[in-house]
Design a protein around this nucleic acid. Structure first.
Length: 772
DNA sequence: CAGTGAGCGAGCTTCCGCTTGACTT
C-alpha cells in the first residue's frame, strides 16, 4: 500500500522530490505527455464540434501500465506536473487515462524544486483547472489542423513529404527574408579616417594615441583634400570629457540564452547544448534546462550570497530577482542554475564541464554588483580644419561581475577596442605620426545562426523551450534550410596615408562575407515559403502565434469557449485550403533570367523533378526546350544569365584519343573527361572544364591509368572478390564492395587470404557510417 | 556522371509540446 503517490513529469525531478517528502510519499513520473491526438483522420472529429480523439502512443503504453498499477495501491494521488498549460493538460490526461477518483486526487504545483516550495504546495492543493486544460486542447487542435491541412497542400503543389506548421514555417520565413535582404544589399562605401598621435606617458615613455575622425567622408576627393589640409597642421587637445558608466550583469540562463551563449562561447549547436545540459540535469548538477524563467529560488539566492562573499567579498554582492521580458513566458520552472551553487566545477566529459562552468559563472555573476567604469573622450582639434579627432579610453574603477563573467555578443569585428589613455590636459599639443584614410563598406544584415534564430523566435513568442532545438532540426531535415560555411570574397579598397608630409595612395585587399555555421535557405525552402505567403498569409504572419496566444489566454480565463475559437479559425482556413488546391498551379519557383542570345528563346530557372535546373525555351513552343542542372552552390534565386548559358556549354567533345571521343562534363563528383566510357576527374583548381585542351585531357587519362596500374597490390585466384589495393589513404583490403583498414603492423603485400578474412571479420575494422 | 510535371497509380509523407531512453556507430 502506498499512502501518497506523487506524479511529476520527469524522473530526475521525481528522485529529487522523493528525498524532500520522506517515507510517506512515493514519487514517480509520467515522462511528459501520455496521450496525443490519433494520427487517423486528423485525430479530431470535425463533424462533432472538434472532439479530439486521444490515444496512448505505443512508446507510452508501458509507462501508463506502470502508473495504473501504482495508482491502484495508492490512497491519495498528487498530480504534480508543471505549472503551465501543458502541465495542466498532462494532469488532466493522467486523471482520465488512469481513471482517478476525484475524491482521492489532488493537483499541486510548484515553480521551483526546493523543500519549502514542495511542502507549501502540498498544503495548497487544488482541483484540475479545466479552463487551462481547454486552452491547451485549443493549442493542440489548432496546431494539428494547421500542420495536417497545409502539409498535404504542399505535397500536391510543390513536392511530396514536405511540411508546414505554425512554428516551422515562420522560422523558414525569417531565414528566407534575411537571405533576400542580403542578396539585394548594395554596399555603400565611406572613407574612415584614423589618426595616431604621440605623447609622453606619466613615466616619460612615448605613448601612441589612436583616434578616429568625428566624421566620415562620402568620396575620395574630399578625403584627399582633408589629408592635404592636415599636412603641416598643428594638433592640440581641445576638450577632455570624463564620464562615469555602469555595466550590469545579465540575468541567469533560460533555455534560449543558454543556447546563444553556448553557441558563441563554446561553439555548440543548439541540440548539442540541450543534450549536454540534459546529462548535467540527470546527474543532479543543474536545475531543469527547458525553461523560460529567469527566476532563482530564495535558497539559491542565499547560497549565491554566501559564495560570492567568500570568493570575492561583500562589495561584490548584489542579490536580486530578475523579471522576464519574454512574450508568452509561462515560468513553470526556475532559471537554469547549478543545483549546488557552491560547487564551481563538476565531474564529467569536457563538454559537460565547460557548459557547467558557463552556467555557474552566469548564475553567480547575475547576483554580483555592477561594474563601474570611467570613460574618457579626448577631442583633438586641427589648426587648419574644423573636423576633430576623437580618442576614447575606458578605465574600470570597480570590476564587479566582470571579475567572473563577460557576456559575448553576436556583433562581429568591433573595430575600436578601447583601452587606457595616458594623462592628458587641455590645450596640450600632440605630435601627429600618421593619418590613414581607408575606404569602408557597409555590411548587409547578418545571417542567422541556429542560436540567433532561436533568439528571434523567442522574441516573437513563437515556439517553446522544449521545441527550439527540434524545430531547428526539422527545417534542416526537410531541406528548407542548410547550415554551412561559406568562403569570403576578396575586394579592393582605397587607402591613403599621410606620413612625414607625404600622401601615399594604395589599393589594399580585404576579405568579407565569410560565414561559419550560418543558416542558408535552400531552393525548396524559398519556393515553399513563397507559396505559403501567397496563399496563407495569416499563418505566415509573424504575429499569428501572438494573436492566437491571446485567445488561448481568454480560454484559460474562462471567457471563451475553445471549440468556438477553433471553429472561427477553421472555417475560413479550411475554405482557403480547398480553394488553393483547386486554383493554384504547381509551384516550381520559376524565374525568367533572360533570353538566349543565339536563339532569342527565354532562359528560365526552376525546380525540376531531380533538383534545380535551367532551361532554354518553354514547353508551349514547338521546339523542345534544352535543360541543364545547376551546379552545387548555384541557386535559383541568384543564378545569372551568363552562368546559366555556361551550363549549356557542357558536355562538349574536345577531340579524339585512340579513335575514341573525349567528352568533358560536370557530374555528381565534379568536372570530368569521359573516354571509352570511363571517367577521369579534372584537377580541382587547375583544370577548367570550359577551357581544357585535348592534350591536357590525354595527360589526365594517362596519369589515371598509371595510378590504376599501381592500385592493385595483390589478388587471390581462389577468391576473386578479395583484393589488396592502393588507395588515397594507403593500402586497404577490398571485399565484396566493402573496404577494410589494414592494421599498421602488417605488410600489405605479404598478407594471405586467411589473414585478410580475419581482418574483414573483425568487428572493429568495419566501415564506419558517416554521422551527418 | 542521366533525367527534367503530360503518360497508370497503392500507400506513404505531415503539426507542436511534454518527456526519456532504445537503437545504431
Amino acid at each position: 500500500m502506498i499512502n501518497n503517490l506523487v506524479i511529476v513529469e520527469s524522473p530526475a525531478k521525481a528522485r529529487t522530490i522523493e528525498k524532500f517528502l520522506g517515507k510517506d510519499f512515493r514519487v514517480t513520473s509520467s515522462m511528459g505527455h501520455i496521450r496525443d491526438l490519433s494520427k487517423k483522420d486528423f485525430g479530431i472529429d470535425l463533424k462533432n464540434n472538434y472532439t479530439p480523439e486521444y490515444i496512448v502512443p505505443n512508446d507510452k503504453k508501458k509507462i501508463v501500465n506502470e502508473l495504473k498499477k501504482l495508482v491502484k495501491e495508492a490512497n491519495t494521488v498528487w498530480l504534480a506536473s508543471d505549472e503551465d498549460r501543458e502541465g495542466e493538460a498532462i494532469a488532466w490526461h493522467l486523471f482520465e487515462v488512469l481513471k482517478l477518483d476525484p475524491v482521492k486526487t489532488r493537483r499541486i504545483v510548484f515553480g521551483e524544486i526546493t523543500r519549502n516550495a514542495i511542502l507549501e504546495s502540498i498544503k495548497n492543493y487544488r482541483a484540475i483547472d479545466k479552463n487551462l486544460v481547454n486552452a491547451q486542447q485549443a493549442r493542440r487542435v489548432l496546431d494539428r489542423l494547421v500542420g495536417f491541412e497545409l502539409s498535404p497542400v504542399l505535397w500536391k503543389k510543390v513536392k511530396p513529404a514536405l511540411s508546414a506548421g505554425r512554428v516551422q514555417s515562420v522560422a523558414v520565413r525569417l531565414i528566407v527574408e534575411r537571405e533576400r535582404e542580403i542578396i539585394n544589399f548594395k554596399p555603400v562605401s565611406t572613407f574612415r579616417t584614423t589618426g595616431i598621435f604621440n605623447t609622453k606617458n606619466s613615466d616619460g615613455k612615448n605613448f601612441q594615441i589612436k583616434s578616429e575622425l568625428d566624421q566620415r567622408f562620402r568620396d575620395k576627393s574630399t578625403a584627399f583634400e582633408f589629408l592635404g589640409k592636415c599636412r603641416g597642421a598643428e594638433f592640440r587637445i581641445s576638450d577632455i570629457i570624463k564620464k562615469p558608466a555602469r555595466k550590469s550583469p545579465s540575468p541567469p540562463f533560460t533555455t534560449s540564452t543558454l543556447q546563444q551563449e553556448a553557441s558563441r562561447k563554446l561553439g555548440f549547436s543548439v541540440s548539442q547544448t540541450m543534450s549536454v545540459a540534459q546529462r548535467l540535469y540527470e546527474s543532479g548538477f543543474i536545475t531543469y534546462m527547458r525553461t523560460d524563467s529567469v527566476n532563482l529560488s530564495q535558497l539559491a539566492l542565499n547560497v549565491a550570497r554566501k559564495t560570492i562573499t567568500e570568493e570575492f567579498g561583500d562589495k561584490y554582492v548584489n542579490i536580486h530577482q530578475y523579471k522576464t521580458k519574454t512574450k508568452g513566458a509561462q515560468e513553470a520552472h526556475e532559471a537554469i542554475r547549478p543545483t549546488y551553487i557552491e560547487n564551481s566545477s563538476v565531474a564529467g566529459t569536457n563538454a559537460e564541464k565547460r557548459l557547467y562552468d558557463l552556467i555557474w559563472k552566469r548564475t553567480l555573476a547575475s547576483q554580483m554588483s555592477d561594474a563601474q567604469l570611467e570613460k574618457t573622450i579626448a577631442e583633438i582639434a586641427i589648426s587648419t580644419s574644423s573636423e576633430k579627432f576623437v580618442a576614447q579610453g575606458e578605465v574600470i574603477l570597480f570590476d564587479g561581475f566582470l571579475k567572473l563573467y563577460i557576456e559575448s555578443s553576436d556583433e562581429e569585428n568591433i573595430e575600436d577596442s578601447k583601452g587606457l589613455l595616458p594623462p592628458l590636459r587641455k590645450d596640450q599639443s600632440l605630435e601627429n605620426l600618421e593619418i590613414v584614410v581607408a575606404q569602408r563598406f557597409t555590411n548587409p544584415p547578418a545571417r542567422y545562426t541556429e542560436a540567433s534564430l532561436v533568439k528571434k523566435l523567442e522574441e516573437l513568442g513563437i515556439g517553446r523551450p522544449s521545441t527550439y532545438a527540434p524545430t531547428i532540426s526539422t527545417i534542416q531535415n526537410r531541406g528548407y534550410v542548410i547550415k554551412e560555411d561559406r568562403e569570403g570574397k576578396e575586394r579592393e579598397y582605397i587607402s591613403m596615408k599621410l606620413r612625414n608630409g607625404f600622401i601615399e595612395e594604395t589599393m589594399e585587399k580585404e576579405n568579407y562575407g565569410r560565414e561559419r555555421a550560418k543558416l542558408f535557405p535552400d531552393n525548396i525552402g524559398m519556393i515553399v515559403n513563397d507559396f505559403l505567403i501567397e496563399y496563407f498569409k495569416e499563418i505566415m504572419d509573424f504575429n499569428f502565434t501572438a494573436s492566437v496566444e491571446k485567445e488561448f489566454d481568454d480560454i484559460a480565463e474562462g471567457n471563451l469557449l475553445w471549440t468556438k475559437m477553433i471553429d472561427d479559425f477553421y472555417k475560413p482556413f479550411h475554405k482557403r485550403v480547398e480553394e488553393t488546391i483547386e486554383n493554384s498551379d504547381y509551384s516550381k519557383g520559376e524565374r525568367k533570367i533572360g533570353d538566349d542570345p543565339e536563339t532569342g528563346r527565354p532562359v528560365i530557372a526552376r525546380m525540376g523533378r531531380y533538383g534545380p535546373i535551367v532551361q532554354i525555351g518553354d514547353q508551349e513552343t514547338e521546339e523542345k526546350p534544352r535543360y541543364a542542372s545547376l551546379l552545387k552552390g548555384q541557386h535559383l534565386e541568384t543564378i545569372t544569365l551568363e552562368e546559366a548559358l555556361d551550363l549549356f556549354k557542357l558536355p562538349r567533345t574536345i577531340g579524339q584519343y585512340k579513335g575514341k571521343e573525349m567528352v568533358v562534363g560536370i557530374g555528381r563528383f565534379g568536372p570530368y573527361v569521359r573516354h571509352d566510357s570511363k571517367f577521369y576527374s579534372l584537377k580541382k583548381g587547375i583544370d577548367d572544364p570550359y577551357k581544357i585542351t585535348s592534350e591536357r585531357a590525354i595527360e589526365l587519362i594517362l596519369e589515371k591509368m598509371e595510378t590504376d596500374k599501381n592500385r592493385i597490390i595483390k589478388t587471390f585466384e581462389d577468391e576473386p572478390d578479395l583484393q589488396i589495393l592502393n588507395g588515397r589513404w594507403g593500402p586497404y583490403i577490398a571485399y565484396k564492395k566493402k573496404n577494410f583498414k589494414i592494421p599498421k603492423n602488417s605488410d600489405p603485400s605479404k598478407l594471405n587470404k586467411e589473414e585478410c578474412l580475419k581482418i574483414i571479420n573483425n568487428p572493429s575494422s568495419k566501415k564506419k557510417k558517416n554521422n551527418s
